[in-house]
Design a protein around this nucleic acid. Structure first.
Length: 819
DNA sequence: ACTATTAATGTATAGACAGCATGTC
DNA sequence: CTATACATTAATAGT
C-alpha cells in the first residue's frame, strides 16, 4: 500500500509522506489501514518495537482531525511527551496544532482546547478528567502508546481506568492502542473493542543470540566467533567486536552500580578506537557533563565519556541522561551501560544490544528473579538502527552451555507473557474509586461495580467476587477517613474527598497528612516546650558530627570539604533559626510527607538503622505523630527511612552542597531532584488540605514548601524568590548584607555587583527583577567594589568551602535543574 | 620479611507519575 | 527459603 492509497487523510499529506521518502507502507501499517484506522475504527497494533507503530497513530490522528475531530496521544513517560510533540509538529503546515500537557510542562499560548492533537501522560489525562477539563468530551480519537503497561502494578491501573473513563465520556471514541508483542493481544483487543493487528514483521532484521565460550549462537542457526581474550570479559569482547565493524553497543545490567562499573571497564576498550577528532569532541562533552552537577557521579560519568563509554540510570540528573542519549545517537559515545531506564525511554538504537544481566534482585521475591520476557524483548528491540545497520544483534550472555540452552528457551524462542490487569489491588482502587465517585462517574456501589466491570480486570479475573470484596474494603476505608459519605445505597464524595481527588493524591497520603497536621495542632504547646531545649542539643550534635568527619578524613580534598561542613553547621548553631520559632518545623513536615505512600522512600543501608534511630529520638519533638514501637519492625523501619528522606530534604534546605548530599545519603543527583520535586508537590497538597481544614499549620507548610522549592534556609526566602536569584546567589547577597528584596532596590550597587562577582549583566537583570528603578550598572566603578569583595570572599567560604570559581552558567545549572 | 595472588567476607540491589502558578543565563 | 557482582579484607603462596 502506498501513501496515496490511504483513505481519509488531509489533502497534501500523502505527497508530504512521499517527500519524506515513504513510498510504501510497512505491512503492519497497511494492515491497520485496511482495518480502518483512518476511518475511525479502533485498532490494537501489537507489533515489535521500532516497526512504525507511531506512524499508525499519526495516520489515525490526522484522519480524525480531518473529519473535524480532536486527538489525544497518551505517553508513558514525560520525556516521551516532548519527543512525540516534536514529531507531530511537522503536520503544522496542514493546519494541525499540537499541544503538550504533563505535570511539569504545559504548552503555552492558547488553551489546549484549541489544539488538534494533545500529548499527555496517562496520569495527567486522569487528572484533567478529575478537574473537568472541557475539551476531553470533544475527543474523537485516543492513542494509547505502550498499552501493555496496564500490566504494571503501579501505573497500569491509571492507564486502564483512564481509557475506561474516556470511552464512557465519549461514546464512539476511536481507540488506537499500540503495544509490544504480548501473549494475549486478542484479549486486550477485545477489551478495547478494537480490531487486532498483530505482526512479527520488522523493518530491520533482528538477530537474537546467546554468547557462550568464544562465539555467539544466533536464532537463525548462524554463529559468530567472538573470543573472550585474556580478560575473560564477555561484555568487553562483544563491545570490541562491534567496534571492529564501527558499530556501537548498548549493555543492559541490573543495578546502577553495575552500570557504572561496566562503563569504567568498557572505557578502556572504547579508548582504543577513538580518532583524535572524537577525542576532542568527547572532552568537550565531558566538560558539559561536569558542569551539570558537582556530585561525584558527574565526575565519574565525565571520565568515562571522555574515553567513549557512558552509563545511564535514574540516579543521573535528567541533563546527564539527555547528554548521554544524544552523544550515543550521534555515535561519539561508543557504548552505554544502562539499567532498564533506557529500554523504556527515548529512542536510542544501537547496532548491538548486550543483555548482560537477565535477573534482578527483588526484595519481595527474596532473591534474584528472572526478568519478564517482555522486558528482555524490549531491550533486545533496541538493536539495529533503521537505515544505518544491515541488521541488529541482540545478545544474551551465558557462562555455561546449560545456561545458554536455558536462555534460548526462556527468552529467544519464548513468547511474551500475557498482560494482566493489576486493578484489583487496594492502593489502585483507593485512588480510582474515590476519583470515580468524586467526578460523578458513579454514585452507588452498583454503579461503581458496573464501571469496574468494563475494565480489563473484569474480563480476565479468574476469581469472581474479588473485585467486589476489595471495593467494599476500600469504600469502608474511604468512609472511615471522611472522603466519602454513604447514605443507604448512595455514595458521594465529601468536600475534602473532592479536594483529595483533584489534588491527585493517594487517599492514604491525604489521610496521613491530615492526621499528622491535626496531631501537631493537638500537641503544639507540649512540643514547643520540648523544642526550647533542642537547639542547644542540636548544636552539640552538629559540632561532634563535624569532629568525627574531621577525624576520618585525610588528604587535601577531604580536608577542604570538612572545613566547609564544620563552618556551615557552626553557623547554624550560632543562629538556631529553624527550631525555635515555627511549629510544625520543616523537618516535621518533611517527615510527614516522606512517610506518605506517594513518596518513594530511601533505602536504609547497614548502620543507618542505628543512625536514624538515634536521630529519631533526638528530633522526636519535631515529628508529627508518635514514634512507633521499635518492636513493630516494619512500621518502625518505614518511620526511619522516612526520617532519612526528611533529613535529605532538610539538608537541601540548609543549603548543603549537592555532592555532600549525594555522598551522605548514597544517592545520585537525579534522586535529589526527584525527592525535591515530590516533596514540593506533596507540601503543596498539604497546604491546600490545611487551608481547607482550617488548620493553623498552613503557613508553616507554605514556608517549608518554598524552602524546598528554592533549596534555602528561611532567611533567604525573600531573595530567592527574585527571578535570576537561586540558592547560591541569594546566599552571597545575604552575606554581603543584602538581606531582602527591598535591600536589592536600595543598597549600594557596588555591593550588589561585588556579591554577584562583578557580573554586570547578571546584576542588572537581578535588580530589574527586584523592581529597582535604576537597574543600570554602567556608572558603577569596579574599584568601588573592592571592599565588599573581601566581605564576599568570607561569605563564600562559609557556605561553599571557598575556592569556587564557578561561572554563572554553572551555578545556574543546578538551579535550573531543581527549580 | 614482604609482596602478589587468591580466598573469604561484606554489602547492596530498576524505575518515576501527580497540584498550582509562573518563568532560567 | 532462593543470587550475583563488586569491594574490602584476610589468608595464602611465591619471591
Amino acid at each position: 500500500m502506498r501513501p496515496e492509497d490511504v483513505p481519509g487523510l488531509p489533502e497534501g499529506v500523502p505527497e508530504r509522506l512521499q517527500s519524506e521518502g515513504i513510498e510504501e507502507l510497512y505491512p503492519p501499517q497497511a494492515e491497520a489501514v485496511e482495518a480502518g484506522v483512518t476511518e475511525g475504527e479502533s485498532v490494537l497494533a501489537s507489533v515489535p518495537t521500532a516497526s512504525g507503530k507511531t506512524f499508525i497513530a499519526e495516520l489515525a490522528m490526522l484522519s480524525s482531525v480531518q473529519r473535524g475531530g480532536k486527538a489525544l496521544y497518551i505517553v508513558p513517560l514525560r520525556a516521551l511527551a516532548s519527543e512525540k510533540k516534536a514529531e507531530f509538529e511537522r503536520w503544522e503546515e496542514f493546519g494541525i496544532d499540537v499541544g503538550v500537557s504533563t505535570g511539569n510542562y504545559e504548552s503555552s499560548g492558547e488553551w489546549l482546547s484549541s489544539r488538534d492533537i494533545i500529548v499527555a501522560t496517562s496520569e495527567k489525562v486522569d487528572s484533567l478528567i478529575r478537574n473537568n477539563a472541557g475539551w476531553v468530551s470533544d475527543l474523537s480519537c485516543v492513542v494509547a502508546d505502550e498499552v501493555h503497561l496496564v500490566n504494571d502494578g503501579h501505573r497500569g491501573p491509571t492507564l486502564e481506568v483512564t481509557l475506561g473513563k474516556l470511552r464512557k465520556i465519549n461514546a464512539g471514541l476511536q481507540v488506537v492502542a499500540l503495544s509490544a508483542t504480548v501473549g494475549n493481544a486478542e484479549e486486550v483487543a477485545e477489551w478495547l473493542d478494537a480490531t487486532l493487528v498483530q505482526s512479527e514483521w520488522r523493518p530491520i532484521d533482528l538477530k537474537m543470540g546467546v554468547h557462550y565460550g568464544n562465539a555467539i549462537s544466533f536464532d537463525d542457526g548462524s554463529q559468530r566467533e567472538v573470543p573472550v581474550g585474556k580478560g575473560g570479559r564477555q561484555t568487553s569482547a562483544l563491545v570490541a567486536d562491534t567496534l571492529d565493524e564501527d558499530g556501537s553497543s548498548l549493555v543492559f545490567v541490573n543495578s546502577r552500580r553495575n552500570a557504572e562499573a561496566a562503563a569504567k571497564r568498557l572505557k578502556d576498550v572504547t579508548a582504543e578506537y577513538l580518532t583524535g577528532e572524537e577525542r576532542s569532541e568527547l572532552a568537550e562533552l565531558a566538560q558539559e557533563i561536569r558542569d551539570v552537577s558537582d556530585a561525584e557521579t558527574s565526575d565519574t560519568l565525565a571520565n568515562c565519556v571522555a574515553k567513549g563509554a557512558a552509563f545511564h540510570h535514574a540516579g543521573l540528573a535528567s541533563e546527564h541522561r539527555r547528554l548521554v542519549e544524544e552523544a550515543f545517537r550521534a555515535r561519539s559515545v561508543k557504548t552505554v551501560s544502562a539499567t532498564p531506564t533506557l529500554a523504556a525511554g527515548v529512542n536510542t538504537p544501537s547496532r548491538r544490544v548486550i543483555v548482560r544481566d537477565w535477573q534482578r534482585y527483588d526484595g519481595e521475591f527474596g532473591g534474584m528473579k528472572p526478568l519478564d520476557v517482555l522486558e528482555v524483548h524490549q531491550m533486545m528491540g533496541r538493536a539495529g538502527r533503521p537505515g544505518l545497520d544491515p541488521y541488529g544483534e541482540a545478545v544474551l550472555l551465558a557462562k555455561d552451555s546449560e545456561t545458554r540452552d536455558q536462555l534460548f528457551e526462556r527468552y529467544v524462542w519464548a513468547d511474551a507473557e500475557p498482560v494482566r490487569s493489576k486493578l484489583a489491588a487496594e492502593p489502585a482502587l483507593r485512588t480510582h474509586l474515590l476519583a470515580t465517585v468524586a467526578s460523578g462517574f458513579a454514585h452507588t456501589r452498583e454503579g461503581l461495580l458496573e464501571f469496574l466491570d468494563r475494565t480489563l480486570y473484569a474480563t480476565q479475573t479468574d476469581e469472581p467476587g474479588r473485585l467486589e470484596r476489595v471495593t467494599d474494603t476500600v469504600l469502608r476505608y474511604l468512609e472511615a477517613n471522611g472522603f466519602v459519605e454513604m447514605d443507604g445505597d448512595d455514595i458521594s464524595a465529601t468536600a475534602i474527598g473532592h479536594t483529595v481527588s483533584r489534588l491527585y493524591l493517594d487517599p492514604m497520603s491525604a489521610a496521613e497528612i491530615i492526621d499528622g497536621l491535626r496531631w501537631g495542632a493537638d500537641h503544639r504547646e507540649e512540643k514547643l516546650r520540648a523544642l526550647e531545649g533542642v537547639s542547644d542539643a542540636d548544636a552539640r550534635r552538629a559540632a561532634s558530627d563535624a569532629e568525627e568527619e574531621a577525624d576520618e578524613s585525610g588528604g587535601f580534598q577531604r580536608a577542604s570539604e570538612m572545613v566547609s561542613t564544620g563552618d556551615e553547621e557552626g553557623a547554624e548553631s550560632a543562629e538556631p533559626i529553624e527550631t525555635d520559632r515555627t511549629y510544625p518545623t520543616a523537618l516535621g513536615l518533611f517527615h510527614l510527607v516522606s512517610r506518605t505512600p506517594d513518596m518513594y522512600q530511601l533505602y536504609l543501608k547497614s548502620g543507618d538503622r542505628e543512625t536514624y534511630t538515634e536521630e529519631c529520638y533526638e528530633r522526636e519533638p519535631e515529628l508529627l505523630g508518635s514514634v512507633p514501637s521499635e518492636y513493630e519492625d516494619v512500621r518502625f523501619e518505614e518511620w526511619l527511612s522516612a526520617l532519612k528522606t526528611a533529613r535529605l530534604l532538610e539538608d537541601w534546605t540548609r543549603e548543603v552542597d549537592e555532592d555532600r548530599i549525594t555522598e551522605r545519603y548514597g544517592v545520585g543527583p537525579g534522586d535529589i531532584r526527584g525527592k525535591v520535586e515530590t516533596a514540593q508537590w506533596l507540601l503543596g497538597a498539604a497546604e491546600r488540605l490545611a487551608g481547607e481544614l482550617d488548620l493553623s499549620s498552613a503557613v508553616a507548610v507554605r514556608e517549608a514548601k518554598k524552602r524546598v522549592e528554592y533549596g534555602v534556609r528561611d532567611e533567604l526566602l525573600d531573595l530567592a524568590g527574585v527571578r535570576g536569584v537561586g540558592r547560591k546567589r541569594a546566599r552571597r547577597l545575604f552575606e554581603a548584607g543584602i538581606e531582602t528584596r527591598n535591600d536589592l532596590r536600595q543598597a549600594d550597587k557596588s555591593v550588589i555587583l561585588a556579591a554577584l562577582r562583578g557580573r554586570r549583566k547578571t546584576a542588572e537583570n537581578v535588580l530589574e527583577a527586584a523592581g529597582r528603578r535604576d537597574p543600570s550598572m554602567d556608572d558603577v566603578d569596579e574599584s568601588e567594589a573592592d571592599v565588599p569583595e573581601a566581605t564576599f570572599e568570607r561569605a563564600s567560604e562559609r557556605t561553599e568551602g571557598g575556592g569556587d570559581d564557578a561561572d554563572d552558567p554553572q551555578e545556574q545549572a543546578s538551579l535550573g535543574d531543581f527549580g
